[in-house]
Design a protein around this nucleic acid. Structure first.
Length: 147
DNA sequence: GCCAACGTTGGC
DNA sequence: GCCAACGTTGGC
């Protein structure tokens, strides 16, 4: 899962009560579907810092609540308000994530790109701008060997 | 700040 | 259903 450190970085998650926060504001259907359909309690997630000096994987989180309505979509004052999301039939979904650890160093995008083992990593696919992407078990294990 | 790559919107 | 226009993402 990607986030811009200037907006919400891994340190912000670390400083939340119970080191837990809802992953709100996703307004892309593919990303929403992954939160709604694929993410299960206890699943592990890489925290990726995007749009910053050193884009890359900085830590690990755990899913502690499965998909439920992103109620910020109902709030006209919220940045991610969506008038088309009906509370009776919510359009947007979020999950809750809990901080697990910060990697001993950032595994940079630049470095990931060099690895043959990660040729199929969704993050590295051309033009991919999704904020949530799948990582296979093999990819996950390999990435952790880079730490 | 630039720009490529996408997703979304809305007229037709 | 097509597609041009527009907005956003995010690396560089």
């Amino acid at each position: 899962m990607k986030s811009e450190p200037d907006t919400f970085g891994i340190h912000d998650l670390l400083n939340k009560p119970k080191q837990t926060e809802h992953w709100d504001g996703v307004r892309n259907y593919q990303a929403r579907n992954m939160m709604r359909d694929d993410m299960k309690l206890g699943d592990l997630v890489f925290f990726y810092h995007s749009n910053c000096d050193e884009p890359g994987i900085v830590g690990i989180m755990e899913i502690v609540r499965e998909g439920y309505p992103d109620f910020f979509a109902f709030d006209p004052e919220d940045k991610h308000f969506d008038p088309k999301s009906d509370p009776a039939n919510p359009r947007w979904i979020m999950v809750d994530v809990k901080y697990l650890k910060t990697l001993s160093r950032t595994i940079t995008l630049k470095e990931l790109k060099l690895k043959e083992e990660l040729a199929d990593l969704a993050l590295l696919r051309r033009g991919n701008r999704l904020s949530i992407m799948p990582v296979s078990k093999a990819q996950w294990d390999f990435i952790l060997t880079l730490e």
